Computed example of a mutant assay.
Amino acid sequence: MKINSSNHNIVLAIVLLTCSAFLFSIMGVFIRYASYTVDNYTVVFFRNVVGVLIFIPLIFSKGIGYFKTEKLWMHSWRAIVGLTAMYGFFYAIAHLKLSNAMVFTYSSPIFIPLIAWLFLKEQVTTTMLIAAALGLIGVICVAKPDSGMFNKISAIGLSASFLAAMAFVTVRALTSTEPPERIVFYFCLIGAMLSAIPMFWMIRPYTLKELSFLIGAGLLANISQIFMSYAYKLAPAGQIGPVNYIAIIFAGTWGFLLWGETPDLSSLIGFGFIVLAIILCSPFLQKKLNT
């Protein structure tokens, strides 16, 4: 049976977003190790400046003209909200279980359908709302009150989640005219310039071990961003957004293997709801529900 172009694009978008989430979870491991001795401002700066350095060969090969844009204000907005979310997310990684930190940031799909509807006029289906609701239940099950759901770190994490959702939707809007490489380049460039300001006051010599974690996190983050940008170019943000939840499962696996962090029954139930939310995004299920 032939799969139509639209369904094929959604499948590919889901695969790309899953790869992005996997790389992002490994980035979380690097940031956790770096945060033992390096401050949050420096971690955020390196994540962005490494991205700028990655693009230097691309600038030479494609030429400066490839990176010219008429959407500088949108790139700037995306960089500001994304950078602010990044500060909150990296802070959560340093102070919470890795899976719980991912929960706060990757709960952004809860907000994506609403933001995409408000700003991009994308259609919000009942299935998408159900998927977002199931994802929220999963988030609450994983990040329980006794695990810090209602404290300062949680407030920072949830704020980062909302800002990340706004950044994701902005990426979706940018992909109508901008190639993914250009989107990631401007995010890194503007992010590096802004994050250099607070980092300047904390600068010091760094050990080889610290640099390896900082540079590694930057490389993984930017490759992940490229995968994510391609995914949002192929499919609506509201439809594939819940796939981001799989990063929580990846992070939980790393947390168990590296730090002995074990999920309890409530967390496992939460992961189940998260997986169910991902399944609801399946184009094949969407097609069945709409026929």
Rank of each mutant, 00 (worst) to 15 (best):
F284G: 05
R47F: 02
I56P: 06
C281D: 04
E122K: 02
P236K: 15
M149V: 03
F250W: 11
G63Q: 07
F60K: 11
F185K: 08
I130Y: 02
G157L: 04
T69M: 05
L16A: 08
V44A: 10
A165L: 01
I26S: 12
I226Q: 04
W117E: 07
V275C: 02
N7Y: 04
K121W: 11
A21E: 04
S266Q: 14
L208V: 13
G252I: 09
V124P: 02
L163H: 12
T170L: 05
G218C: 01
K288T: 05
A235Y: 08
T291A: 14
S147G: 15
L268P: 14
A167E: 14
W259E: 14
I64Q: 04
S224I: 00
L17K: 03
G272L: 06
V81I: 07
K71T: 10
A116Y: 09
V169P: 13
M193H: 11
K2G: 08
A247S: 14
A133W: 04
Y91R: 15
T253I: 15
K121I: 06
I249H: 00
G216E: 01
P205F: 01
M149G: 02
T69G: 07
V139M: 15
T126C: 12
S224A: 05
N244A: 14
I3G: 10
N151C: 01
G63K: 09
G63M: 06
E178V: 03
I248L: 01
T177C: 03
V11G: 06
R172W: 00
S176A: 05
C141E: 10
L120H: 07
P179H: 00
S282I: 00
I274P: 01
Y33L: 12
V29L: 09
